[in-house]
């Protein structure tokens, strides 16, 4: 179940547009803020709030890269795999991350701390390799820097 506050925020978003559907991506992001991912139950709830069928909403939800329809960890790592970062050593960083986290791309660590996902160009190609962890951007990565970053997120308790 969504919280009343979340429902209220979604309703408010919907009022910005002539057609409530226009707020649907925003609404899904509100769900993800609170729950990290969009479960079937949440999907149906949001669909109801926006006067859409679950199908219509899921059609949109599954189209976009950053709407998660499966559970993700506490921190989602989006590792840029586009061309400039690839030239600058993406494959090393990726291999390093996989070893450190013990997961493949698309997987979540056993402790639920991290989900590792590949991501298209993050728009910081002059300072690659780059990745985002949650909403923080990290650039000019090398293995040490990755270890240090992971360490930081490991420690922070869930907000």
């Amino acid at each position: 179940m969504l919280t009343e506050q979340e429902r209220e925020r979604i309703r408010a978003e919907a009022t910005h547009y002539d057609y409530p559907q226009a707020a649907c991506v925003e609404a899904l992001k509100i769900v993800q803020e609170g729950h990290r991912w969009v479960s079937d139950e949440h999907l149906k709830e949001v669909a109801g709030l926006l006067d859409m069928s679950p199908e219509a909403l899921d059609s949109v939800a599954t189209f976009y890269n950053l709407i998660f329809r499966k559970p993700v960890g506490e921190n989602v790592i989006l590792l840029c795999d586009s061309v400039s970062c690839w030239i600058l050593g993406y494959e090393n960083i990726c291999a390093h991350l996989k070893t450190r986290l013990g997961v493949e791309l698309g997987e979540t660590t056993a402790d639920g701390k991290f989900t590792l996902l590949p991501m298209a160009c993050l728009g910081t190609c002059d300072r690659g390799p780059a990745m985002m962890v949650g909403s923080d951007l990290h650039r000019n990565l090398d293995n040490e820097k990755v270890d240090e970053i992971l360490g930081r997120y490991r420690q922070t308790p869930e907000a």
Binding site: V83, A120, C121, G123, C125
Partner: peptide, 8 residues
Amino acid sequence: DEMEPGTF
């Protein structure tokens, strides 16, 4: 939207 790889 700037998502063209190599563009920043």
